[in-house]
Nucleic acid binder design. Structure first.
Lengths: 181, 181
DNA sequence: AGCTCACTGAAACAGTCGTTTCAGTGCCCT
DNA sequence: AGGGCACTGAAACGACTGTTTCAGTGAGCT
C-alpha cells in the first residue's frame, strides 16, 4: 500500500515537488494544486508517499540532503573561521535563497508543532551543522566556539533573508571572523 | 462592518486568542476551534476583526507589542555588550519560550509568503531590534557591530529553541560578549 | 417609549482538504 | 500466453475551511 522506498517515478515526482515547494513554501501546500503543477494527480502522490505527511517528510528530507551536500564539501581540518567563511559564501549566494527560506519555514514549524511530519527538523539541522563544524576543528576544542559560529551564521542568514542587505550582513560576518582569530 | 479600532470585547478576545496562539502556533489556526477555546464564535471573531487575515494581523501586532515592551526597557546609553547581555537573559528565560517560538514561526512564514497577513513581519522585527541596539550605542558607531550582535542573539535563540540546551548556548553568548569588549 | 449601537447565535454557503474506492492501464517476467 | 507489479484516472466521501445571511440580544441615551 504505502510506499517508502525509492522508485523511479517517486524520485522524479519528489524532485518536481521539491522545486515547487522551494518557491511556494510548504506551509499551505496542498495536493491538488501541487499535483496539477507537476503533472501528476493526488491519487498518485498518495500512492507513492503514503500520505500527505509522508510527502512532507520526504520533502524535508530532500531539503536536508541539499544542506548536507554542502556541508560535506568542507569536511577537513581547516579551522572554524575558514569554514564559517565558506558557509557564508554559500548562504549569501542569491540562488540559495529559496532553500534558506524553506529552511527557516520548516525550522519554525517544527518548533511549534513538535509532532507529525515536521518533528525533529530543527534539532536535526542544528546537530548536522554542529557536527560538521566540529569536524573542522581539532578534537577537544571548545564547543562554545562552534555554537557561536553557528549562531552567527544563522542569525546573519535570518537578517539577510528579511532585509536582503548583503553588504551589512556580510560586514557583520567579516567582523565576527576578525574577532574570532 | 469590519472593525479595526479597539473595543473592550475586541481587546479581550484578542488577548485570549493570543494566549491560545502562543502554545498552538498560528500556522494552522482556524476560527471554529479557536472560538470554542476562548468562549466565542466564528461570527464574532469575524465581526470584530473583519476577516481571518485581520485576526492574524492583530495577533502578529500583539506579539510585536510584547517584543517592543521588552526592547523599550533597555533604552539608554549602556553599551552594546550590556544590552546583549540583558536581551539574552530575557530570551533564555523559559517563560518566554512560547513567544519566541511564535516569533520564529511568523518570521519564516512572512519570508515564504510575502503578501497577505504575514507581510513584512520579518523585516519589521529586524528593524525594531536594530533600532534599539543603535540607541544603546553612541551615534555614528559601526552598524556592523549591531548587526553582528543581533545575529548572535537570534542564532542563539534558534539553537536554544531547538535543543533546549541553555548551558551551551549561554556559553556561546558569553564567549561572544568576551570577544566584543 | 423609542432608537441606536455593540455584540451575538444558528444555520447555511460554496469551496477545499486529505483520503478512499473502484477500475483500469501497460510493462516485465516466466 | 498469462500473471504479477508499478502506476494511473475519475469520482466520490466526510470533514473542515472562511465567510455570509438573517435574526436577534440587551444596555445606554434622549
Amino acid at each position: 500500500m504505502t510506499q517508502d522506498s525509492a522508485s523511479p517515478r517517486r524520485t522524479e515526482l519528489l524532485e518536481a515537488a521539491y522545486r515547487y515547494g522551494l518557491d511556494r513554501g510548504l506551509a499551505d501546500l496542498s495536493l491538488r494544486p501541487l499535483a496539477a503543477a507537476i503533472g501528476s494527480s493526488p491519487r498518485v502522490l498518495l500512492f507513492l508517499f503514503g500520505s500527505k505527511d509522508g510527502l512532507i517528510r520526504a520533502l524535508l528530507a530532500r531539503a536536508r540532503a541539499d544542506e548536507l551536500a554542502l556541508l560535506d564539501r568542507l569536511d577537513g581540518p581547516l579551522g572554524l573561521a575558514a569554514a564559517a567563511e565558506r558557509l557564508w559564501a554559500w548562504a549569501a549566494a542569491p540562488e540559495h535563497r529559496p532553500l534558506l527560506r524553506l529552511w527557516v519555514e520548516a525550522y519554525g514549524r517544527s518548533l511549534v508543532e513538535p509532532d507529525g511530519a515536521w518533528a525533529g527538523f530543527a534539532k536535526a539541522t542544528v546537530d548536522d551543522w554542529l557536527a560538521v563544524l566540529a569536524a573542522c576543528e581539532p578534537a577537544g576544542a571548545d564547543p562554545a566556539r562552534r555554537t557561536l559560529v553557528l549562531a552567527v551564521l544563522r542569525g546573519a542568514i535570518l537578517d539577510l533573508l528579511a532585509t536582503d542587505d548583503a553588504d551589512r550582513t556580510g560586514a557583520a560576518l567579516r567582523l565576527h571572523l576578525g574577532l574570532l582569530r
